[in-house]
């Protein structure tokens, strides 16, 4: 990278332990310097986000189905708060219905990921998402019309 200080801050909220492990391994293979923080559910995530001292992430990956507070509720809550307007939100879902995808973007998501079934595909998808997000971040592109469905 151009500057060594550049560290991409990534958060993931997912209640499935295996999914969290796969995700961490995929992130570990990125060439981009990054710092990953994991949450087991939406409630823990939102507690972190609402802490004024917390470092805000550049990108947040949200599983849709989680106990206590699901991904869609987190998405709405985050988008209702101007403080988080620069945080890119990637929704992780098993659905590939066009209607679900459209609704998720309307609610304020930037990225919609249809959960891949195998690990090599997951690595590819995460890399593409992080790199696309980087273009928006580093080239000052308009985040309000940043939609990426993969």
């Amino acid at each position: 990278m151009l500057t060594n200080e550049s560290t991409l801050r990534i958060l993931l909220a997912d209640d499935d332990e295996d999914d969290r492990t796969f995700f961490s391994e995929a992130i570990a293979e990125l060439k981009m310097t990054n710092q990953l923080t994991l949450f087991n559910d939406g409630k823990d995530l939102m507690e972190y986000m609402h802490n004024p001292d917390a470092k805000l992430p550049h990108i947040l990956f949200l599983d849709l189905n989680m106990p206590y507070k699901n991904g869609l509720d987190c998405l709405k809550e985050i988008r209702a708060d101007q403080r988080f307007k620069n945080v890119s939100i990637a929704i992780y879902s098993t659905s590939s219905s066009e209607k679900d995808i459209e609704n998720t973007f309307v609610e304020g998501a930037n990225i919609y990921i249809k959960k891949p079934n195998d690990f090599s595909e997951l690595k590819k998808v995460i890399k593409e998402v992080v790199h696309m997000n980087w273009q928006f971040h580093s080239s000052g592109l308009n985040k309000e019309t940043f939609f990426f469905s993969i």
Binding site: E98, E102, F105, V106, Y112, M132, F147, F148, S149, I150
Partner: peptide, 13 residues
């Protein structure tokens, strides 16, 4: 680039 068609993009906006 977006995974969407132009018309779906317009609808979302």
């Amino acid at each position: 680039v977006t995974g969407l068609t132009p018309s779906m993009f317009k609808r979302i906006v």
